[in-house]
């Protein structure tokens, strides 16, 4: 294998792409140039730049460093603060391109001329998504992602302030990918307390009136409690 592909493989591994995927990708690219008869650098460009574009799509867990280099950042926030966070990061130049299957905001920031973005979240009512989008369009809002009965809209700040919307010194990409509010934690704690109380009550009754052993019951109860907490997250972020 040529130096180019060795270098590319190393860069992709460093970007967090799984080894199996790196081997398949590099093998495929080697087959490509074997067939085209071109030099790898001529076909794919410099290894570092090519690895960035490939790694951005292939890495399952993107680090803040690779995100800021590639201008791409995938993140989420709970329902209580998502609109506020969207506007905060929109002011830093992050443009949401879509909301993915996991409920994450897939965002991009122009490396050369980042612009400010504004966001709003709307409930899709009886009028439907299309009518909602048409109603907001005259004010410059365009859909940028949907989640069950919610629709997210973005608007370039340039629509209202013109060239002043350009950001001259954008801050680096945030290291975090998940933003949870105090209300989320409070709700989780309350739910946990309720589950614990119910489990304890049922446990006392069961151990008193049935032959179920305490240890088996508590193991089951712990698994059930964890599942319930997982369900809380789904409720707030994914199934809303």
């Amino acid at each position: 294998m040529s130096d180019y592909f060795d270098e590319l493989a190393r860069l992709l591994r460093e970007a967090g792409v799984p080894r199996e995927r790196v081997d398949a990708t590099v093998g495929d690219l080697a087959a490509y140039v074997a067939e085209s008869g071109t030099a790898p650098e001529e076909e794919f460009g410099p290894a570092a730049a090519f690895a960035r574009t490939l790694g951005a799509g292939a890495a399952p867990a993107e680090s803040a460093e690779s995100a800021s280099e590639g201008g791409r950042w995938v993140w989420t926030a709970d329902i209580f603060i998502d609109e506020q966070r969207l506007n905060e990061f929109g002011a830093q130049g992050w443009e949401v391109e879509t909301v993915d299957k996991r409920g994450m905001f897939v965002s991009r920031r122009d490396a050369e001329r980042p612009q400010r973005w504004e966001y709003r979240r709307e409930v899709v009512g009886r009028e439907g998504r299309r009518a909602l989008a048409e109603r907001l369009a005259p004010d410059g809002w365009e859909p940028c992602g949907s989640w069950v009965h919610y629709e997210y809209f973005k608007r370039p700040a340039a629509a209202s302030v013109g060239p002043a919307a350009e950001i001259t010194a954008p801050p680096p990409a945030p290291a975090a990918r998940m933003f949870l509010s105090r209300r989320f934690y409070a709700l989780a704690a309350a739910l946990f307390a309720v589950i614990a109380a119910v489990v304890a009550g049922v446990g006392v009754v069961l151990t008193a009136v049935t032959p179920i052993k305490g240890a088996h019951f508590w193991t089951g109860a712990a698994i059930g409690a964890l599942a319930a907490l997982g369900a809380l997250w789904l409720m707030l972020r994914r199934l809303r």
Binding site: Y32, S36, F44, G45, T53, G57
Partner: peptide, 13 residues
């Protein structure tokens, strides 16, 4: 060029 095509294939995948 492959350098243009593969990022598109990755994004679509």
């Amino acid at each position: 060029k492959g350098g243009t095509l593969y990022p598109v294939l990755n994004r679509l995948e």
